[in-house]
Nucleic acid binder design. Structure first.
Length: 527
DNA sequence: TTCCGACAGTGGGGTCGCAAT
DNA sequence: ATTGCGACCCCACTATCGGAA
């Protein structure tokens, strides 16, 4: 099969807005793909590479060679090139990758080049990723979308399901079962503004502490333990203490869902950054483990005694969890029946006081709906706000092209100058985007084509989750998950929050930003 | 007809590891 | 030794479509 029709359909899909139309366009192409093409075509049209990451980024894609005049590239030639790219290593790897990429792009027509660049950089922007591909796959094969989605969740990815489904038809979906040792897409939570609201939405529910660490899925099959991240990457060899905990439990065929965190001597959680650094360390794991020992804490169970528990309501899964996992290894929780708000609120406060991130409110009757951000779990975290000053803004991409999007945020110093605390592009409606583009252009003092620097006069109210240590910004801290709430056109820059009040609000002392370096873990840490 | 769930898009900061400088 | 880049961790929010109410 040639790449050309694929690239063409991708462009057509991007050109229509109706999801139903996208689905039938994709389905039409799936039908024409031969059995050998399927494992490649399906992921490509869902915007993914079967090889995963191949070590080629935006930089290697600059200045593509002139396009070919005629379409001769086959999908298999493209796939072979990606396989070769993924295998390149050692000195000179960068140059070799560049050479392979140039060779591939040189053999591609203009439309194919656009498609390949999008595919490699993960910016297909056709408005159709896995979920739409699942629908198209269902349409092509005559299977029920739900059944396809469930198989994808259990297989961990689309490709193996697509291959079997198109080769043998809907009945093969029954072959996709939860297997201990093979990762499953994890269930995710939606956000809610407050505990009372979340409890009201869910009715009978559990309120569990939300720990700020790394999500882990722990499989044990006899003496074999495997640990996976939220994106299903295996990290078993980096977490020996988690393996030890799994081997210490009184069961030998289970799958647990939980979070790893690090605790200090007083039993309080250490900052997320320390946990992330530890989990990311592949080199000398034993010494990393001595410096930052990790504690797994579990909140769900997907299989026990080799038996699949996914479809059981949470209440029953928790019973199974409690049978296998002793108290300190489980997340703290309470059960709230029939909207008794105060208990949940008190639990939320107590959880924050213990230094944790917030709570997750979970419907007791909900099954484990993996891979979807189902409404069965609602997370609640405290929100802080600040009035900051816009120092600059970056030109947006994609649907934000031509609009000033990413804002550089500054806090006021006592002397009237400003310290940059981070950036945000979140929380902006199209109308606000439009308005800020006009207003910031009026305030512009410089435009290098990427960033527009402005006179620091515009005040914006920012919500954020807490401070974290930063080596990038002059105050030594930056805002975590900053987003725009609204512009404060009623405020002048001289009325914006100062860096002193920002630091003081998070127990980092007032005064100058240079004292913000709190020497590792001795400080109280970000919330 | 209106409401709302699910999805895609638009990017944020940090950290590690590897290759290039 | 330092710097740049890619891969992955954490993540919020809005616009849109299309089925449910």
């Amino acid at each position: 099969m040639l790449l050309a029709p694929l690239a063409h359909v991708s462009r057509e899909v991007a050109g229509v807005s109706a999801r139903s139309r996208k689905i039938s366009l994709l389905a039409g192409l799936f039908r024409t793909a031969g059995p050998d093409d399927v494992p490649v075509v399906i992921p490509y049209l869902a915007g993914r590479l079967p090889q995963g990451r191949i070590g080629v980024g935006w930089n290697a894609l600059k200045d593509p060679p002139p396009p070919a005049g005629r379409a001769t590239l086959t999908v298999h030639r493209v796939d072979d090139t990606f396989t070769a790219l993924a295998a390149v290593a050692g000195p000179g790897a960068q140059g070799e990758r560049r050479r392979l990429v140039r060779e591939l792009l040189g053999a591609a027509t203009e439309e194919e080049q656009r498609f390949l660049v999008g595919l490699i950089s993960g910016e297909i922007r056709q408005g159709a990723l896995d979920a739409v591909a699942v629908e198209a796959l269902a349409e092509t094969s005559g299977a029920r979308p739900d059944a396809v989605r469930r198989a994808v969740m259990l297989a961990g990815s689309l490709a193996p399901v697509a291959r079997r489904l198109l080769a043998a038809g809907p009945p093969v979906l029954d072959e996709f079962l939860l297997t201990v040792g093979r990762p499953v897409l994890p269930m995710l939570a939606q956000s809610a503004a407050g505990v009372a609201e979340a409890v009201e939405r869910l009715g009978e529910c559990a309120v569990e502490e939300k720990l700020d660490g790394i999500r882990v899925q722990v499989h044990r099959d006899g003496a074999a333990v495997r640990i996976f991240t939220r994106t299903l990457d295996e990290i078993t060899d980096r977490l020996p203490e988690v393996t030890a905990v799994a081997l210490g439990l009184a069961g030998d065929g289970f799958v647990l869902d939980g979070e790893v965190i690090a605790l200090d001597a007083a039993g309080r959680p250490r900052p997320f950054q320390e946990v992330a650094g530890r989990v990311g360390s592949r080199g000398d794991v034993p010494s990393a483990a001595r410096a930052v020992p990790l504690s797994p804490v579990f909140f769900d169970i997907l299989a026990a005694d080799g038996e699949e528990l996914l479809d059981l309501p949470l209440a029953d899964r928790h019973t199974a969890l409690a049978r296998l996992v002793p108290e300190p290894l489980r997340v703290r929780r309470i059960v709230v029946a029939g909207g008794s708000g105060p208990d949940a609120e008190a639990f939320f406060r107590a959880t924050l006081d213990r230094g944790h991130e917030g709570v997750v409110v979970k419907a007791l009757d909900a099954p484990y709906s993996a891979g979807r951000r189902g409404a069965g779990w609602l997370k609640v975290k405290p929100v802080h706000t600040l009035d900051l000053v816009v120092l600059a803004a970056e030109w947006g991409h994609g649907r934000r092209t031509g609009r000033l999007s990413n804002l550089h945020l500054g806090a006021r110093r006592e002397d009237g100058s400003f310290v940059m605390l981070g950036k945000t592009f979140k929380g902006l409606t199209d109308a606000t985007l439009e308005w800020q583009t006009g207003r910031l252009r009026e305030l512009a003092v410089r435009d290098d084509g990427f960033t527009v620097t402005v006179r620091p006069e515009l005040v914006v109210e920012i919500a954020y989750d807490g401070l974290q240590r930063s080596s990038r910004y002059p105050a030594g801290v930056t805002l975590r998950f900053a987003r725009v709430l609204r512009y404060r056109t009623d405020k002048r820059a001289a009325e914006a929050d100062t860096i002193g009040t920002v630091l003081a609000a998070h127990g980092r002392g007032g005064g100058s930003e240079d004292s913000g370096q709190d020497g590792g873990s001795s400080g109280p840490g970000a919330e």
